[in-house]
Design a protein around this nucleic acid. Sequence first.
RNA 1: GGGGCUGUAGUUCAGACGGUUAGAACGCCGGCCUGUCACGCCGGAGGUCGCGGGUUCGAUCCCCGUCGGCCCCGCCA
Length: 617
Amino acid sequence: MGTGKLKRTLSEEINESLVDSDFNLKGWVMHYRDHGGLIFIDLRDYAGIIQIVFDENISAESFNTAKKIKNEYVISVEGKVKIRPEGTENENLKTGKIEIEVKKIEILNECEVLPFQIEEESDINELIRLKYRYLDLRRKKMKDNLIFRSKFNFLIREFLNKNGFFDIETPFLTKSTPEGSRDFLVPSRLNNGNFYALPQSPQLFKQILMVSGFEKYYQIVRCFRDEDLRADRQPEFTQLDMEMSFIEQKDIMSLSEEMFALIFDKLLNIKLNLPIKIMDYDDAMESYGSDKPDIRFEMRLKTVSDIFGGSSLNVFRDCLSKNGVIKAICFKNGSNLLSRKDIDELVTVIKDFGGKGLAWTKVGKAEQRPKPAPFTNSSLLTVSAQGCKLEGGIAKFITEEEEKILIDRLEAENGDIIFYQADEKKVADTVLGRLRLYLAKKYNLIPESKFEFLWVVNFPLFEYSEEEKKIVAIHHPFTAPNEEDIKLLDTNPLMAKSQSYDLVLNGEEIGGGSIRIHKTELQEKIFEILSIKPEDARLKFGFLLDALSFGAPPHGGIAFGVDRVLMLVKNVDSIRDVIAFPKTQKAQCPLSDAPSHVRSEQLRELGIKLIEKDKLI
RNA sequence: GGGGCUGUAGUUCAGACGGUUAGAACGCCGGCCUGUCACGCCGGAGGUCGCGGGUUCGAUCCCCGUCGGCCCCGCCA
């Protein structure tokens, strides 16, 4: 007996108004409850779950077939929609007020015993999840994530199409792009000894499309980087890549904002406050010790170098004499949250962050008490005008005057702890910035349900690389300097700021872009500063330089990390949970078993001979 | 390249000073059950304790190595 006269209906389409109508449903057996003379099945299709009932008095034949059913069998049933008997409704199900009384059933496919249960509450080992990813993706959470992703992509395409953008594909088999990461290489059979590189991003091609006159380009595109993996890094990941001509930084920013506002509104029902806040790179580093500040909480870094000009503390004095800085953060209520042992452990943490040590003082309530005799070693000496005093740690090296200004500047109150870092500016900033995040995470200072966007702008154009002993580009070598900084290129290029912008969400960089250089002369000057020889530039990306010389319009763009945005928005811990078929930390795919050996003929065709790694020169 | 956590039944986890037969829950198999919904009840099967070596009378447990998974640093926008 088969089903099939009726058109298939999805579980979500069935409701109480359809009582006594006949429907055909197809799907997977989620739960199977055999009560002897009555069998219940929770049938799952992609849209949801509905209960179906087999009663031997309604259809003995169906009932007998149903006896053979096990979990995850694929079935097709025909039956009537019935209101459930009073008292047997299931409030946890959208379809919990009704059920399907089955008249006909067909088993479309059976299912082996599962390696893990589909709706297991506890976390299954990720290796097993990935090996049986098709089963993992049957789980509601994973399915929801991927369906959300699909809607997200659709909304973006719709929005950009409405705004005059063209979706144009760019090659995957291409030439190494000038961004910093390691390329995935693809050997060429027709050109033995030569290799394609998979694109780290479509950077050069999208600029060339601007030269071609498309004016507005976008692509939701795979990018490849052969670097070590992290929870938020996969070797292949997806960017929303955009480029526009005759445009300025503020236009790209406001378009991006509009797009995110639409996404948050339509998909999450959250209204974003536009415009998104903008912060200078320098301010971000100064106040948050990071170029991607998490502004969901305060605890800003403060420079206190001036206070300690004449400090009796050797570490501080030495640091200042070497042109270093002293920075501090105030950890609200830290004295109560942290034991002495916790504080000591933070010193180890700080060293992992690259700091030399960690100075601290507790903030206590000042008491009216007689001043101790001079030359005592008590740390309870000082009393500030704010009714607070510093105690413990380095307090004994801090004068009353210093204390007063410190407490003021850090807005410290009774019960707080102040942490200090004395080092060269960049180190002090980043170390304290990381401590800020560490403490916030550990002591739950971050409002989890909040979404805080932030633009970080005015990045330096260059930085000096100690490793390479030369000036390198912060963004990429096609980033345009700020107009007013062009003159600095000849005098002090490291001071020049660029027309670039990063979009940060909850302390994670989710996108970045820049206005590009569209004049050959300026581009050549940049190469010169980067010590890239003209012949090397030609070799690597001569085709872009050529293109720029044929009437390139002013242009710029931005790219967003789709996986990361989805990870944040869906509040999952890893981008693997928003990617259908991700790889393990060793960049392997347990499902397909890639990467794998290839046949020797394949290698011969490619002119490739394998040698053992330790025999490499 | 480095640091941390981890690997015991199909799954999630217990476990022991180094000492009889390594446990639980869920799943699986068999049986019973007409209102369940993570159904229930009765019975049963299921283990190279990741792999290799060492110490020991004896190792799942201790030591060394190795492989895998996850998190992080380096690396990477």
